[in-house]
Simulated assay, not measured.
Amino acid sequence: FEIQDCYFSAPSTTGTAAVEFWYVTNGKVSNCISDASRGGEGFLIAGSSNNVFINNTVVDNAKGFDIIQSSHSNTLIENTVTSSGGGYSLSGSDNSKLIGNIAADNPGSGFRLTECFNTTVVNNTSTGNTLFGFSLRDCTNNTISNNTCASNGYSGFSMSHSSNHNTLTENSAISNSANGFFIYGESSYNTFTSNIIAFNSDEGIDLSSSTSSNNTFFLNVFYDNGGANARDDGANNTWDDGASSGNYWDDYGGDGSYVISGGAGSQDRYPFEIVRPTIDTPDDLSYTEGTTGHSITWNPVATFPSSYRVLKNDTIVDSGVWNGSEIVIEVDGLPPGLHKYKLIVEDGFGNTANDIVFVSVVADSEGGPSIPREMVTLGVGIGAAAVVILLSYALYTKGR
């Protein structure tokens, strides 16, 4: 069955959810809105499995999504929860998927997983929440990747109470009021790779629990965090891949290993430098008006490419996401004159580079429509034949 395109509202004293699933399987809810000062959840899913929730909006509820009591294999895609008691709470939910959801400005945590196994949390955004952006408590074997966590009231990502064997990769923890990542309470054997951890008020990663051990960190970027970029008071945590790849530290001196703060005495043996944006310099271009096949190709480079803009005579004519590939701009059809094209690229930290190419368009000297070569050849042939006829006639007349 499917519920779609519904609007739910009720007095705040009811204490009930807008949508309740009790022991339901194979249901679907899409494009619905729960918008009221309610005492209950927007969506309560209990003992229910294999359900799908797509593009729903929850505003000003006690909770957004509350998934409890062994509700397994549910999928949440592109839902939004704002100004509610919490965003998305999963408890005892295994094999579920959270993809492309938003939790913003909630007076709780954006995403909270408790006793979850094999859950996938991908491409979600958690911003402006009062507590954690993402919280894992007693969670095992989950994948947390490509999520954005910014400007939350406490840490961006929290792992506690024996959260083990999880993989966190390509996430961004930026401008949170405490740590980027807070790891404590016997949380061990987790892997953190290719995360961006920047502008957080305290430590980038705070691993201050002596009982959290055997975690691995490499290819992460630590940039301008308020406390130490990382603190390790645990045991046997590894800050590189053991072979050649460590992390980027903005306060690295450039010589030898990077020493991690804390009592563990940990080191990153292979710290790396990031490449700030650079652009090659293509030659200026000139072509005759009316001709085609003209373009500018730039090959910018950066460790963390983000976006680009192209300006023609100081007006933006193209922009978008830059993934590190070449940028090509077609310049056919310009009027005669000199045209300035400027490319600006930016990386994930706001560093920029730019290059300018001038395109000169020369007016067509013929000043009119061109004549096909076949017509010219035919005209010449006809003209020559006419001359021969006239000469023959003149000689004939003279002979008479």
Rank of each mutant, 00 (worst) to 15 (best):
N215M: 11
N247T: 06
E115T: 14
S89Y: 11
V301Y: 02
V275Y: 08
S295N: 14
L390C: 12
T114N: 11
F304S: 03
N101L: 07
S37G: 06
H165N: 12
V331K: 06
G40N: 10
C6G: 10
S34A: 15
N146C: 02
T292N: 05
A235I: 11
D60S: 15
T13F: 02
Y393T: 15
V359Q: 09
I356R: 03
N166R: 02
D224H: 08
E374G: 07
T140N: 10
I77W: 08
Q69I: 02
K340M: 07
K28R: 14
N61M: 08
N164R: 11
I316G: 00
R231I: 15
T291M: 03
Y287E: 02
I33A: 13
D206T: 08
D241E: 13
P305I: 07
E374R: 12
N106L: 04
N225C: 11
T352F: 00
K312D: 02
T193A: 02
S158G: 00
S84N: 04
D364G: 05
V221Y: 14
D355Q: 13
V362P: 02
I316S: 09
P335K: 06
V328R: 12
T281M: 13
V357I: 10
N323S: 15
H294C: 07
N179M: 11
T140Q: 05
I279K: 00
G226Q: 11
V359W: 04
A385E: 12
I316Q: 06
A384I: 13
T114A: 11
D35T: 04
N141H: 08
S201F: 06
I205D: 02
N164F: 05
T57W: 03
G350V: 09
N179L: 09
S177I: 00
F222M: 01
I260R: 02
I77A: 13
I68M: 05
G180F: 00
L136V: 01
V81N: 03
A18V: 05
G108N: 07
S286E: 14
D94L: 04
S49H: 04
H165A: 13
T288G: 07
I296G: 00
S84W: 04
W322A: 01
T278H: 01
C139P: 04
